[in-house]
Design a binder for these strands. Structure first.
Lengths: 207, 207
DNA sequence: ACCAAGTTAGTAATTGGTGACTATCTTAAT
DNA sequence: ATTAAGATAGTCACCAATTACTAACTTGGT
């Protein structure tokens, strides 16, 4: 009758991963700020208090979430870049990897951009700032290489182009947040990247 | 001794404007979600309860804020576009007007992008979606005109370019949120726009 | 191989605090 | 004198964190 679901007891490490996972899920649904520890517990069929067996404070959970994201993203994007033949190819591969990653975890850009950035918190803020500015620096660096190889315009401002690159991703995410799901994201991304690419390629003397 | 500040009593209409004003200010400082009605009251030297003489619910305040932003932005951007000589010029003038407007009210993109977009609320969400998609449609429309006048590449996807345009603004805002103030925003914007512009101009057959 | 002792994850109830909203009184302005 | 804005003092709901306790593993000594 009572088909009792086997309630496994998880190790603290496993449970921490579980908490991180559901936190990301919940943040995708209702936004970071409105996710409560009760929500997390409900999503895991656990009591609210037991969360604090595994994390000292709720803030620590978000820190762990952002670290998780950073590590996964670095791995995925880094692998994509490693397979590239030249700097421009690397940027394109990173872009595609990034979009695919976001498609799998729609909550992530929402977590990184904007919301947590405005917390006084400092720990979280610094973490996120580090991720974004590191990413931007990586793109700018690749663009400098591309310039050295004459793949892009010599008078291109690499940093500004990197800002546009990241903005492009933000714009695509917002677009897909408003209209439709991830299918739209992929398709829209494919159409948008060439415009960016053309923007950084050699121009005809005049600005 | 007690240099009693003359505490004027405002009409409900005046007080509503005041509430909208301080709400935007506070949202810029600490993010929309963490602004309380107590914060607003403090900022106006008023008691918390009095707020509700002028707005029925807190949500109504944010609705009023977004409506205020929409009206101001439409006016500023619309005027900029009206002075333009051609569609591309209109886009550039709109961009500059938009950046200048954001420079004056740094909270605004934070209000529109992301945070309030993820509220179930519907009223607010619809309002914001309307603003963004309307803006995007306006840009896409101008790009279509530009295409008709052969000012941009004939095979340009106007909608994708509009996504990139909006993303560019988001990227610039985020950039200036992380590093430095509005001075940086203006300067960075001037360097970034030409890259976008070049991206939409005539390309050499191949994509 | 066994089991008592120790350890750790989970529960249930509670605490301290905060925030939106309200009912009632007070006062300034016409 | 009337009335609308503001003050005061609440209520109610929610939430992070804690505490006292229990159930389920793990392990070392026999």
């Amino acid at each position: 009758m009572n088909q009792e679901v086997v309630k496994r007891r998880l190790s603290s490490e496993e449970r921490q991963s579980e908490i991180i996972r559901v936190s990301i899920e919940l943040a995708a649904e209702k936004g970071v700020d409105s996710v409560t520890t009760q929500d997390m517990a409900d999503a895991m069929q656990l009591t609210q208090g037991s969360i604090f067996r595994h994390f000292a404070t709720k803030d620590d959970i978000w820190v762990a979430v952002v670290v998780w994201i950073r590590d996964r993203m670095m791995k995925v994007v880094g692998k994509a870049a490693a397979e590239a033949s030249d700097p421009l190819d690397a940027i394109e591969r990173m872009f595609n990897a990034h979009i695919a990653f976001i498609g799998k975890h729609p909550a992530i850009p929402r977590l990184l951009f904007s919301e947590l950035l405005h917390k006084k918190n400092s720990k979280l803020r610094q973490l996120i700032e580090g991720i974004i500015s590191g990413y931007e620096a990586k793109i700018a660096g690749l663009l400098d290489e591309a310039k050295a190889q004459s793949l892009v315009s010599a008078d291109l401002d690499s940093q500004s182009a990197a800002v546009l690159y990241i903005g492009m991703i933000q714009g695509l995410v917002m677009q897909s947040t408003i209209f439709g799901g991830k299918r739209a994201l992929q398709q829209q991304a494919e159409k948008t990247f060439p415009i960016f690419l053309h923007g950084i390629k050699t121009r005809s003397s005049s600005i």
